[in-house]
Design a protein around this nucleic acid. Structure first.
Length: 541
RNA sequence: GGUGCUAUCGUCUAGCGGUUAGGACAAAAGAUUCUCAAUCUUUAAACCGGGGUUCGAUUCCCCGUAGCACUACCA
């Protein structure tokens, strides 16, 4: 029987959760769900100096917003249970490494007793000096006997120093010249010689905490993690981790590794960083984050108007792709189709343009009622009272406009004219569309429109099919507005240019040459407002 | 410097020895429309270089080059 799949997302609470970290969490989640396994969240806070207040809560809130469920560990929750209460769940706790000191003590002791690790007293200054003295200095089998540690000091001396309160670290004793094989689910077999691995610090007495390497291996083992899916930056230390599993005697239950390609800067070179977002004007964090430690504010996808489904979809495809041409995936579809062996090996430049397109796709799928609910606060911000405005009207307007925006927030600039009469007229549009005859046309059109009764204003009619022609052998009856029929007949009768009149008309109502179909606009504005805007335009232009 | 990973249109990618090298984003053009957008159609756009292996390499191997990562008492 194969073991139940268990994966973990193990971020450090050192700031906002980077979008690359979000993708790592997503891939872990997809993998876990697909295999009916567990997704754990563990907080790796072994560096007390880098702790940022609020970061843990931020991570939890981000995952929840994105719909990445946590089965076990910190902030466990699930969509099905509607569980929005922050809680820690599971039998393998605590899930915060800073709370697992006692556990790590035991395993550090074990390594020491087995002669697989040793105590070192070299101060950071001394190490720095060695690095100056010896080119390419590395604390390893070739140098450890030159250093100040339990290999070179007598047992009594070591004990004396420790009881004197001298600070020390525990280093892993890496055996020289062994080819270490790491099996990676994405990259295949990676072989690294142990000579290039240094005697890593596993534990520091200064804060009584292990380093990442020790804590990670111990926790993954104790928490019965079967698959370690993490960023490529960990690949170079994977051999060290293999050696640690072996040193502990856990080689048989060692998890599988999968090292994900990195997210790169959209332009230039290098890893995507926080500053790139500021520089290029797109978020690199899921949620807005106020860093209490350095006082910075980072923008988030949520606050920028992205839908979590769009972010998930976009991120999933940045480094993974199924065989076909499908682009739009729901979370459930991703769970179905995701596979680690289809994760690409090379880093992906983070091109946020496509992210906008994804958001556009999801926005268009949303029901009008939902978009209207999102839009109403925006309207209120612009001083449009929602109480004065029927919900149905907002829904109708949103329905007309949604295919032309990427974000709900863009709706206002696209359709403010529905709610407010234009106060100024777009210069470009005037130049192109407002001609010498326009005032006269509008003046006449006012009279034509005044002749239409309130009842007829919004009425739709069906025009009988036209005569069959070669181009159109089977003409269909067309549905149109009554008002359209009246105005078109008038234009035809007068022999005016349709475009000339209609564009001038549009400028009166919208203030520019854009927007949905003109009769949709008159329909919403109503007769009174339409005529009023025409009069205003005649006076102002 | 050392070690490792990687390499297809501008970007994300499909391809797993024989293809007109496919799709999407972005770009351009056209159709449509009263305008703008959407939509539809079309166009332009790529196998890093050199050696092998092979009847045949984008694909497999080696070298080079480039990019990236790691090289802390950070993760």
């Amino acid at each position: 029987m194969t073991k139940k799949v268990r994966v973990r997302f193990a971020p450090s609470p050192t700031g906002a959760l980077h979008i690359g970290g979000v993708r790592t969490a997503l891939y872990n989640y997809l993998f876990a769900r697909q295999h009916g396994g567990d997704m754990l969240l563990r907080i790796e806070d072994t560096d007390s100096t880098r702790f940022v207040p609020g970061a843990e809560e931020y991570i939890i809130e981000s995952l929840r917003w994105l719909g990445i469920e946590i089965d076990e560990g910190i902030g466990a929750w699930s969509k099905a249970k509607g569980n929005n209460v922050q809680e820690t769940r599971g039998e393998h706790g605590p899930y915060r490494q800073s709370e697992r000191r006692e556990i790590y003590h035991k395993y550090v002791r074990q390594l020491l007793d087995d002669g697989k690790a040793y105590i070192a007293f070299d101060t950071p200054e001394q190490l720095e000096q060695k690095r100056q003295e010896i080119k390419n200095f590395q604390y390893d089998a070739s140098t450890r006997l030159l250093m100040c540690n339990s290999l070179t000091l007598s047992q009594d001396e070591v004990n004396a120093r420790i009881s004197n309160g001298e600070q020390y670290v525990v280093r892993f004793k890496v055996e020289p010249d062994i080819d270490v094989h790491v099996h990676d689910l994405i990259r295949g077999e990676v072989v690294i010689n142990s000579n290039i691995i240094d005697d890593k610090v596993l534990y520091k007495s200064a804060d009584d905490l292990p380093t990442y390497h020790l804590a990670n291996i111990v926790d993954d083992h104790l928490m019965e993690i079967t698959h370690v899916i993490r960023g490529e930056e960990w690949l170079p230390s994977a051999p060290l981790h293999v050696l640690l599993y072996e040193a502990f005697g856990w080689a048989d239950s060692m998890p599988e590794f999968a090292h994900l390609p990195l997210l790169l800067k959209p332009d230039g070179n290098g890893k995507l960083s926080k500053r790139d977002g500021d520089r290029l004007g797109f978020p690199v964090f899921p949620l807005e984050f106020h860093n209490e430690k350095d006082g910075t504010v980072s923008s988030g996808y949520r606050e920028s108007g992205y839908y979590p489904e769009a972010v998930i979809n976009f991120l999933a495809l940045l480094g993974w792709h199924a065989t076909g041409d499908k682009e739009i995936y729901s979370m459930d579809e991703l769970i179905q189709e995701f596979s680690l062996d289809r994760v690409s090996k090379s880093g992906a430049k983070f091109d946020f343009e496509k992210g906008k397109w994804f958001n556009h796709q999801y926005l268009m799928q949303k029901p009008d009622a939902e978009l209207a609910r999102e839009f109403i606060p925006v309207l209120e911000k612009h001083g449009i009272s929602s109480s004065a405005l029927p919900q149905a009207t907002v829904e109708h307007i949103v329905g007309l406009m949604k295919e032309r925006v990427n974000f709900v927030s863009e709706l206002w600039e696209q359709c403010s004219f529905f709610f407010e009469a234009p106060t100024e007229y777009d210069e470009k549009s005037l130049k192109k569309r407002w001609k010498e005859d326009s005032p006269r046309h509008i003046g006449e059109l006012i009279q034509v429109l005044e002749g239409i009764s309130d009842d007829d204003w919004c009425r739709r009619i069906t025009l009988p099919a036209a005569e069959a022609t070669d181009q159109n052998p089977v003409p269909q009856p067309t549905e149109t507005w009554y008002i359209d029929n009246v105005v078109m007949s008038w234009i035809a009768e007068k022999g005016y240019g349709v475009g000339l009149v209609m564009n001038a008309f549009r400028i009166c109502l919208v203030g520019a040459a854009r927007g949905p179909h003109i009769w949709e606009i008159t329909d919403v504005l109503g007769k009174q407002e339409t005529l009023r805007r025409m009069q205003t335009a005649l006076a102002k232009i």
